[in-house]
Design a protein around this nucleic acid. Structure first.
Length: 488
RNA sequence: GGCCCCGUCGUCUAGUCCGGUCCAGGACACCGCCCUUUCACGGCGGCGACGCGGGUUCGAAUCCCGCCGGGGUCACCA
């Protein structure tokens, strides 16, 4: 048997922004396609005109692009199985809808949404499964005519074959057994003729020659219905792989109620795509018992559905943050600055030009390199280098107070600094240590007080590096300022 | 409630198919120590899990049965 070419798709509905769950699904599709040298198709499921918007479509594309995913066919990429927006595939659906009708696999149903809703409620109250009872399944032509004359517009339902075995072999979960008897005749087209999800999904996957449908576990229950459509239309069904869901801290499906954010929000907070993708890949997939750092390229080489877990995974921001730090640390100081630049500009620390401010920011950031976890933290980490006046936070004030000799000592330190000809970190350190010894004060105390005076904080980069970067003038000024603050 | 899926440290997971090498390995988080001018980085160490009950077996996280727990889904939304 000739192996079918691998073709997978990611099919978002542009009714909202791309969230982490969707991003993970898209990523796994990309990885699977690359791993098997197949094609990755982007299909836009915009049949719900009321809820779909061009703006959401744009933002989804933006998010996928940011992640670094690449699709071979899609609305803009083109391809020979297009169009790739469902709103432009009406003719195709109409054609297959006709086939369904011709084959007697669809029938008109005159029940109104209100009636159906009521029946569902009753069934639920009676503790029964709320399923369509098939009352319109065998309407005679005369009855149909009578109902139509009453002004009722029928929708079209799929006629399920009660005896059909709709089980399938899922690449992640193994065999999933579902009997047709557990399902009801579902709607394939609304009264206005517009087709619904389970129908278009099957038709699209078939006509786009999709070989593997990789999607979230929440679609498992739709699979038998789609299988039934494949069968009725004599399509060869694809292989299915249902990914475990992404969970919130309470282990229910991740949603906005858990503060689940859109992918682009993570970008805006300063997470880098290489870390985000790496982290996402590990949510449900693993390589072995220890390796967990992978580039997109490596993921595309190693990914395997066989190693996808069945259990849902909780999205752990702490670990994402750690991983982001790992990737940030791997950057050269120049790259780190360039990537943090948008945040620095937004905070007003640097301008668009490469001037002294940019130079200072780049060097300051280099001193905070091993500490930064997200690019969004960059401004607050180095803001004190730019501050006109230093504000002392609580711990800083304490360190200032803990300095034996207080203001007088600080003034002496300032003088010593002012007297330096060579204002390098090394010279500075030598001077301060000698000074400490001379005054019989622990170097640590002086260093802590100086850090407080220079940055207003108790934590920060190596004091001498930071002082050297600040420059003699500012250092002396800030030390004197801190000394005078004691009197208050 | 029906149907479907899932169940190893707090979290992500390795191991489960082919039972012994697992008194269960790695990572994040947390705690301690070291390095050290603080924080961080790094190093070392610690805490911490096979949901429960039966069975099969010389031996079970791994096989079988039952139970319990969690989740998903039941739209003219996708």
């Amino acid at each position: 048997m000739a192996k079918k070419a691998v073709r997978v798709r990611f099919a978002p509905a542009p009714t909202g922004r791309l969230h982490v769950g969707g991003a993970r699904t898209a990523l796994f599709n990309d990885l699977f396609a690359r791993r098997h040298k197949g094609a990755f198709i982007l299909r836009v499921e915009d049949t719900d005109a009321a809820r779909s918007s061009e703006e959401y479509y744009r933002s989804i594309i933006e998010a996928l692009t940011w992640l670094g995913l690449e699709w071979d066919e899609g609305p803009e990429a083109g391809g020979k199985h297009g169009p790739y927006r469902q709103s432009q595939r009406r003719d195709i659906y109409a054609e297959y809808l006709d086939k369904l009708k011709e084959g007697g696999r669809a029938y008109e149903c005159f029940c109104t949404p209100e009636e159906l809703e009521e029946r569902r409620r009753d069934a639920r109250d009676a503790g029964e499964a709320p399923r369509y009872d098939g009352r319109c399944a065998n309407l005679s032509p005369r009855e149909r005519e009578r109902l139509a004359r009453q002004g009722l517009k029928p929708c079209l339902r799929f006629r399920l074959d009660e005896g059909a075995d709709l089980a399938f072999d899922d690449l992640v979960r193994g065999r999933v057994e579902i009997k047709a008897g557990d399902l009801d005749d579902f709607v394939v087209a609304r009264p206005d003729g517009s087709p619904t999800y389970n129908f278009v999904c099957a038709v699209d996957d078939a006509t786009m020659a999709i070989s593997h449908v990789i999607r979230g576990e929440d679609h498992i229950s739709n699979t038998p219905r789609q299988l039934a459509v494949y069968r009725a239309l004599a399509f060869e069904p694809p292989v299915f792989a249902h990914l475990p869901l992404l969970l919130g801290p309470d282990r229910s499906r991740l949603s906005k109620r858990h503060g689940a954010k859109a992918v682009l929000e993570y970008r805006d907070e300063g997470y880098v795509p290489e870390a985000f993708v790496n982290f996402l890949a590990l949510l449900g997939w693993s390589y072995d018992d220890e390796r967990e750092l992978f580039s997109l390229k490596e993921l595309r080489k190693y990914f395997s559905l066989a190693r996808v877990a069945k259990k849902g995974a909780v999205f752990d921001v702490d670990k994402l943050k750690w991983m982001n730090g790992v990737y940030l640390r791997r950057l050269s100081v120049g790259d780190l600055f360039e990537r943090a630049r948008p945040w620095l500009e937004k905070a007003g620390l640097v301008g668009a030009e490469d001037d002294e401010k940019a130079e200072l920011a780049a060097r300051a950031l280099a001193l905070e390199h091993e500490k930064i976890k997200t690019l969004g933290e960059a401004p607050e980490l180095i803001a004190f280098f730019f501050a006109e006046r230093v504000e002392y936070d609580e711990p800083a004030q304490e360190n200032l107070l803990k300095l034996p000799g207080g203001a007088a000592i600080l003034r002496d330190v300032a003088e010593a600094c002012a007297a330096l000809e060579d204002f390098s970190a090394e010279a500075l350190e030598r001077t301060v240590r000698e000074f400490a010894q001379e005054k019989k004060i622990s170097a640590g105390k002086i260093i802590h007080a100086m850090r407080a005076a220079l940055s207003g904080r108790a934590v920060g980069p190596s004091l001498f590096d930071m002082a050297a970067l600040l420059g003699q003038e500012r250092v002396v000024k800030r030390l004197m300022k801190a000394a005078s603050a004691y009197k208050r």
